[in-house]
Design a protein around this nucleic acid. Structure first.
Lengths: 234, 234
DNA sequence: ACCTGAACACCGTTCAAGT
DNA sequence: ACCTGAACACCGTTCAAGT
């Protein structure tokens, strides 16, 4: 029971097949929304142009009327995810606590979409939400008396650690059966030829706790704080 | 003028085509060496099973007699690259300088093979050379009075920063015309709605100096040193 | 401008068969 | 045990053509 009027809507399974020239009613926003659905369901590996087109009920190449290509689509998906990174009341926190909270929130979002990290790392981050987050971070540095190039270098160090953390953890979270894998790792380390590795097999195989992330960020913030120069204490 | 004796060697273009059952003379080491050649020539993107088989003069599926699959092959390639990470005289250095040198050397190797980093991050590092490097690092921590779980946590923090650094820099080094891209980034940041981002456009667009890596590692080492407890100073 | 059909040039891996 | 031939189930993207 599809509606009698043409053209048929995209993704309507009852619709008669479209011929060339018949509109499917796609827009860039519809494509982006469907891409995010597909991403949440099956990760970045499952997000292909062909599967996306299939879901929208169009031919694969129809997407290229609304999106510049796969890389550009993933750029848009990533920026829409960055929009969800928000730390309420960050201005009321101390500057170091505020930056820690911001990195925690970014890490949490990225861990939820870990399969997208390779793309994030390989592309320049210039979307509006990346810019907004950088602005918030630079504002917190400023509140702590860190300005100019020092703030940019500090921010880069925090992001380096944050991205490294997600890059190491996301693939392990994506794999199921983590207990069995951890045990396999423990045995592999324990049987190594290297004495200290064998002795620390348990710790080496153990997945890092969230607290280890906080600790690393705090070490960096401490270093940034000290390099700011002791004269500026307020 | 190929040698009259059969079976023809792999990768000999003059050889007559082989039928099923005729040996090509492959071994796992030959496959690994050819994979490293292909990697150096065209990066991880150019390293496909089919291209590798083509180079060796065999059918694509012939590789599966010597290698468990592409992931296992890349594991072996990575471990063979880790074998080249060596810091001469590391025991004579202070423990912190030794660890900094080790991270620098690891970073340099990974930057030279940046296209392999996604695979490194997505797989557990359990090869013999990964183990050897972990042993060296744990030995340096021990020399500094950091032992047990604290040493493992410290090493993980250093690797998190190192991998993050390579993950952010390698894609940008792989792209040519870096001056033009940097200028494009500068303009994008300068025209952002966010005031601090626009004001720091130059610094944000600038590629990080090698010194920024050293600084981040030193901050982490300082934090590790302090958390070791002040009583153990030697 | 938006969409279809068909094609191009690839992937990694598996299965059956030959020696 | 080692290799070939053929196939499966995919990719992203481009080109020409239709309305």
């Amino acid at each position: 029971m599809s509606t009698p009027g043409r053209p048929p809507r995209a993704s309507d399974p009852d619709a008669a097949p479209r011929g060339p020239g018949e509109r499917a009613g796609l827009t860039a926003d519809i494509v982006l929304a469907a891409a995010r659905e597909l991403l949440d369901e099956s990760g970045a590996e499952g997000l292909s142009m062909r599967r996306l087109a299939d879901r929208l009920g169009v031919a694969p190449n129809a997407l290229y009327s609304h999106v510049p290509g796969k890389a550009g689509l993933l750029d848009a998906v990533l920026d829409s995810l960055l929009a969800e990174v928000v730390v309420a009341g960050i201005e009321a926190m101390g500057w170091r606590d505020g930056l820690l909270s911001l990195m925690r929130a970014s890490r949490a979002m990225l861990l939820d979409h870990g399969s997208l990290l390779p793309h994030l790392l390989s592309r320049p981050m210039r979307g509006p939400n990346a810019s907004r987050l950088a602005e918030v971070a630079l504002g917190r540095f400023e509140a702590g008396g860190v300005t100019g190039d020092a703030a940019v270098e500090g921010l880069r160090a925090l992001l380096t650690f944050t991205f490294g953390s997600v890059a190491l953890e996301a693939p392990r979270r994506a794999e199921g059966d983590s207990a069995a894998r951890e045990e396999a790792g423990r045995r592999a380390f324990a049987s190594a030829d290297d004495a200290r590795v064998a002795a620390s097999a348990d710790a080496l195989a153990r997945r890092p706790a969230d607290a280890a992330f906080d600790t690393g960020i705090r070490w960096l913030l401490e270093g940034i704080d000290r390099d700011r120069g002791p004269a500026t204490a307020g």
